[in-house]
């Protein structure tokens, strides 16, 4: 499938990348591993005038420790990150989510930044222009209503990063840079809930670093999928436990990963969180398994993730 016309620029520094972006007046896309972006452009879901390749920027490629944080450059590949001993040792939820992401070859190309900043997905959205034209454009494409939930003037696409939920359970923050300068936000605040623009990034902003408080956790990631490789999560549940406190985060259902904090981890609290997560999950018929089933699995996998996290900690 041929790509539509665009220009290719390579940046060697963040400043250069941002300057290039400004030059294209918002019509450019940053390119890291391309495993999310290139298919979107092929499907004509994204039509950049230029792509700005960030892979030449050295500071985006490093993993460093300091001041009680682990800082991960946005362009570190999922595979390299998974194999960094700090991850397995400190953040088992993240280790498991990285290991469960797509397949090994795409883990070697895909970056942590790109994985977090991926677009939301829907069976009626991730289709070719011809397909979508035949179907009629949905809300997310600029149409009037959703094609899955008849008549809804909203979007129910799923945010399918495996790693963002894991990072959120680890209280990770995102360091961003853009035309207006740098800022740091809690990762869970990166989501808008707006299907047309699911990520709270300013125009021209890029993800520079993911920072995780460097303290040991117990944790697990449970992923619902049909095949044990390649598939996006139909539900993804990350759990991290530090001391008596714990956090769970649900991905793969809806636009925003949902967070559940447990002040005291015990069976009752886990059960309560599972019930709450189940009640709040609102999957629709836009992925391969039925919504009722996916909803049920939110609670089941949350409990399972806690069991696993606490058992492995023993």
């Amino acid at each position: 499938m041929v790509l539509p016309e665009f220009e290719y620029k390579k940046a060697n520094s963040i400043a250069e990348a941002v300057a290039l972006y400004k030059g294209y007046k918002g019509k450019a896309k940053y390119l890291a591993g391309g495993t999310d972006l290139v298919p979107l452009v092929k499907l004509r879901l994204s039509a950049p005038k230029a792509v700005i390749d960030l892979k030449g920027i050295k500071e985006l490629k490093t993993i460093s420790r300091g001041d009680g944080w682990l800082s991960i450059g946005a362009n570190v590949t999922l595979f390299d990150l998974k194999n960094d001993p700090a991850i397995k040792g400190y953040f088992p939820a993240l280790y498991e989510s990285l290991d469960a992401t797509s397949c090994e070859t795409l883990q070697m190309r895909g970056t942590i930044g790109g994985n977090i900043l991926q677009d939301t997905r829907c069976l009626e959205y991730n289709q070719s222009l011809q397909w979508r034209t035949a179907r009629g454009f949905c809300f997310k494409m600029g149409g009037k209503t959703c094609n899955v939930v008849q008549g809804a003037k909203a979007c129910f696409a799923n945010y399918c990063s495996d790693n963002a939920p894991a990072l959120i359970t680890l209280s990770a923050q995102a360091k961003l840079a853009g035309p207006k300068g740098a800022r740091t936000v809690k990762l869970e605040n990166l989501f808008t809930g707006d299907g047309k623009k699911p990520l709270a990034l300013e125009e021209g902003e890029m993800l520079v670093q993911i920072q995780i408080p460097l303290k040991k956790t117990k944790g697990a990631y449970e992923k619902l999928r049909i095949r044990d490789s390649m598939d996006y999560p139909l539900v993804g549940v990350a759990v991290s436990v530090a001391g008596t406190k714990a956090r769970a985060c649900i991905g793969g259902v809806g636009l925003v990963p949902r967070v559940y904090d447990l002040k005291n981890v015990n069976d009752a609290a886990v059960r309560e969180a599972a019930e709450k997560a189940y009640a709040e999950a609102k999957p629709v018929a836009n992925a391969t398994l039925t919504p009722a089933y996916r909803k049920k699995m939110v609670g089941v996998l949350l409990k399972r993730a806690f069991n696993k996290a606490l058992q492995e900690g023993k």
Binding site: M1, Y8, K10, L31, G34, T35, V38, P39, V51, D53, K55, T105, L106, M108, R109
Partner: peptide, 13 residues
């Protein structure tokens, strides 16, 4: 040294 899906790689890369 890295296996890549060449359908997702831009030649300038």
């Amino acid at each position: 040294g890295i296996p890549m899906r060449s359908c997702l790689v831009l030649t300038p890369e």
